[in-house]
Computed example of a mutant assay.
Amino acid sequence: MSFLLEFVRDPMTVGAVAPSGPALARVATAAVPSTGSPIVVELGPGTGSFTEPIQRRLAGRGRHIAVEVNAGFARKLAALHPEVDVVHADAADLATLLAQRGLRQADVVVSGLPWAAFTENQQHDVLSSVVATLSPHGVFTTFAYVHARWAPPARRLLRSMRSRFDEVVISRTVWANLPPALVYYCRRPTKTDVDVTTR
């Protein structure tokens, strides 16, 4: 109910009427290493659908930083997961947020952001911040709803990701999610700010 309430209050930053389901969360967080001490950044965690599986995969290792622009979600998430560094901030400021913590790069960035609600400039700024802070062998994951995959914002997002990463792999459809979704795995950031969203 709190998710729906936040959507009604601010649909442009929440972007969905319900949180992602467990099946989608498993697929979206599969890139989080089960060994080592990775730095994992979660963008737009909302009520924490991806937060718990990330924590399970980390099992006390590495660092988990969650960046949430909605103040209500950020407060609740911090209370539920004191082991997570929850930051009330804009994802476009990721480089600054990492620098403030003495970090230069992230090993994995998992996004739950509502891309369809973003303007072209917002998409550009967030993706640029991800590319600028992701390690050369890092992985960026995000998802799209199947029914909206061919809508202009979703197509623009995919073009933008392909212009910024050497590899973009699309998962099988997660039918168990409501609505069905798919996950993009983006690897090897190019570190260039080429954008083809206007083509």
Rank of each mutant, 00 (worst) to 15 (best):
V69N: 12
A79H: 02
G46H: 11
P38Q: 08
P45K: 08
A66C: 07
V126S: 02
G112W: 08
L80P: 00
L80Q: 15
D125L: 13
L24Y: 02
T119N: 07
P22C: 11
Q105Y: 05
V27I: 09
V67S: 14
A116N: 11
F118H: 07
Q100L: 12
R56Y: 04
Q123S: 01
D10I: 01
A78P: 05
D10T: 14
T51Q: 06
Q100G: 15
R104G: 09
P11T: 09
G46F: 06
A117V: 04
T29W: 03
W115I: 06
H88P: 00
P53T: 12
A74G: 07
V110A: 14
V14Q: 10
A116Q: 13
R57G: 03
V41P: 02
G15Q: 07
F7C: 08
Q123F: 02
L98Y: 03
Q122W: 03
A23D: 08
F73I: 10
T35M: 05
P11E: 06
G72F: 10
G60F: 06
V32T: 03
P45Y: 03
H81S: 05
S37F: 01
G62K: 10
V84R: 00
A59R: 15
E52M: 00
A31R: 09
S37M: 01
A106L: 08
T35Q: 14
R56N: 13
G36E: 05
F118L: 10
L97K: 00
L77G: 05
I65E: 08
V84N: 00
I39V: 15
L94Q: 03
V41T: 04
I54P: 15
V108C: 15
G21S: 07
P22I: 09
S34M: 04
E52Y: 09
A74T: 07
D10P: 09
L77N: 09
V110S: 12
A66W: 04
R63H: 13
G102Q: 06
R57A: 15
V87R: 15
T96E: 12
H64R: 11
L94G: 03
R26P: 01
V69L: 15
T119P: 01
A71I: 10
F50K: 04
P114F: 14
G48C: 10
V67T: 11
D93Q: 12
A79T: 08
P53G: 11
L77A: 01
D93I: 00
H88K: 01
A92H: 06
L97M: 02
T47Y: 02
